[in-house]
Simulated assay, not measured.
Amino acid sequence: MEIKTPEQLLAMRRAGKVVAQALMATTAEVRPGITTGELDAIAAGVIASAGATPSFLNYGEEHGEGGFPGVICVSVNDEVVHGIPGDRVLREGDLVSIDCGAIVDGWHGDAARSVFVGQPATAEAAELCRVTHDALWAGIGAAKLGGRVTDISAAIEGLVRSRDVDYGIAENLVGHGIGSQMHMEPNVPNEGKPGRGPRVVEGMALAIEPMLTLGTPVTATLDDDWTMVTRDGSWACHWEHTISVTADGLWVLTAEDGGAAMLERLGLPFGPLAD
């Protein structure tokens, strides 16, 4: 695992702010008639104007897999993650998950938000989005110095299972360590027993990202080799933040305010190194 110095975490915070700005800009433009490719162009402009580099664009090409062709992932309705932006036109009621990464001075930030195009198509879809967001913050709140990574996993699963609906926790999709690379050890599963895995220590950075469905957890990858969809066609939702835990508390590197407002609302300690 990669343990960062305070200076390196500050660089990750700068990358995280770029990600937050790109997500705010793109989600603000989600409306009927816009294409996912147009959203990608908006994100590209924000990242470029900040002097940052997209984390996702051409990701994977060094392994001979064919790199990801977009700056953001835009996943709609039954698409769980890794949706390729293009000429798809968004329609009223669609559930759109936008995932974005940026690099500043060699350090990554990674986050995702889900929004509806206009009004949610159904009450069930609206609740799915709320529960996924709540699960993200339950996971963030479980990250404590000296604790274990799967404490986060158990908190996410516990929140999800506390609801009346039997949501699917998307299989084979997990959060991850992040820093000088976008995907690093340790994995951060979205379900499991607490007290397992590496200890949470100062200098660790984690991308926490619950991905829930209205049906089964089973997923499939489309012929584009990127887009993951629910096997049963049920709708899915994705929320994500990159965090670190300091001696003073939690620091959400990809939230515009560092997570201060939400952490206060939840009664959790806010511990930025600087902001």
Rank of each mutant, 00 (worst) to 15 (best):
D87E: 14
G147Y: 11
V117H: 08
E256H: 13
A261I: 06
D164Q: 14
H82C: 03
R31I: 03
V18K: 03
E92R: 11
A135V: 09
H108L: 01
G175P: 01
E209P: 01
G101W: 02
P272C: 09
S234D: 13
E264D: 07
G51K: 07
G146P: 08
G33F: 04
R88Q: 11
M184Q: 15
L9P: 13
M228Q: 03
M24D: 15
A102M: 11
E92C: 08
T150P: 03
L136W: 09
A28S: 15
G66R: 04
P210K: 01
R163K: 15
G267A: 11
E171D: 14
C129R: 05
A261F: 09
T246E: 11
L222F: 09
K193E: 13
L266K: 12
I156E: 09
I34V: 15
V229H: 11
A22Y: 04
R199W: 04
G139I: 07
L266D: 12
E124S: 14
G16D: 07
A44E: 07
T26W: 02
D110G: 04
L90I: 00
W239G: 02
Q119R: 12
Q181E: 14
R231C: 08
D223M: 12
T5N: 09
T5C: 14
Q119W: 13
G66S: 04
T26I: 04
N190L: 00
T230P: 03
S244E: 00
V201N: 15
R148D: 06
D78Y: 12
D94W: 05
V80E: 05
I84C: 10
R13C: 02
A50L: 13
G67I: 07
I208Q: 04
M204R: 03
V71E: 08
F56M: 01
E240Q: 14
G16M: 01
G86E: 01
T132L: 11
Q119M: 11
I140C: 07
R113I: 00
L273G: 11
E38M: 11
V252E: 10
L39N: 09
R13E: 03
W226Q: 15
R163G: 10
R265T: 07
T254S: 10
